[in-house]
Design a protein around this nucleic acid. Structure first.
Lengths: 134, 134
DNA sequence: TATCTGTTCTATATATTATAGAACTAATAA
DNA sequence: TTATTAGTTCTATAATATATAGAACAGATA
């Protein structure tokens, strides 16, 4: 489990930890049932306080992606193969997506490029029965 | 210029102001050259401090989307018809896109649904010579 | 001159972020 | 039992971000 962090970046460290793990889950590198490093160990590896890692893990638990146990540690609960997400969650996510895509359009990015970026990202994910036909 | 804000939401007010304006630009409701409300007036309309609006406008200025003048006020500088964005900017944006899309995949959203949400959002934008063929 | 607009400064209060240390709970291993 | 492991829960501190507030300034316009 490699996990590179930018300590001096604009995005909070606990958020970066959460983001990298979400990406690892989406790409199938952390399938459902797989274990994540213990909070204290990851904190040492990253050179940050264990409370910071704990906050990132807790975020993932609130999102339903992690299951945290006393001795079992942090285990992935959902992945790209799980059932469809909650309708309310999908709405919130779609709103954030619209804002992010609008940003690219406002910056003058062509529609074809925007679509291409989306497809490139999605192609890296590990869907259960992916068909990568062009 | 309608602009609804959630004062008690998790996202900062100045960020919401920035996001709504970005979406208005992308959708062609605020084309390049069009004027935005004065800082103080928008502050009154939204029921927030004018410093909060100023911070949102200043963000957009830093992103190259707005031009702020003494008497000219806030004028849109770039829109969906402008030239392609800066390569460095595109890289950063693509990274944020990958994180957001990974979130949906990790939550179990099917690839087809993710693509559909992207296309739905893009269809609302005002590209110069859009071809909406299916 | 007077007005409108963005800009800049100080100031205050609250919330967020990150670090730090200590103690606790539950499960496992020796 | 005893020790270890790992998450959980408290307090505490410092730095930064957020939002409000007021005042004053600078440039363009009527």
């Amino acid at each position: 489990m490699l996990l590179s962090i930018e300590p001096d970046g604009p995005v909070p460290i606990y958020q970066q930890i959460r983001d990298r793990i979400v990406e690892a889950i989406a790409r199938g590198r952390q399938p459902a049932g797989s274990a994540l490093p213990p909070i204290r160990q990851l904190a040492v590896d990253l050179g940050v306080n264990f409370h910071t890692v704990n906050k990132g893990y807790d975020l993932l638990r609130q999102e339903g992606l992690l299951r945290l146990g006393r001795k079992s540690g942090a285990v992935v609960r959902r992945d790209a193969g799980s059932g469809p997400p909650d309708p309310g969650w999908t709405q919130d996510w779609a709103a954030r997506l619209r804002t992010l895509l609008a940003e690219a359009a406002a910056q003058g990015m062509p529609a074809t490029d925007i679509v291409a970026e989306c497809e490139t990202a999605i192609a890296d994910f590990a869907f259960p029965a992916a068909a990568a036909e062009a």
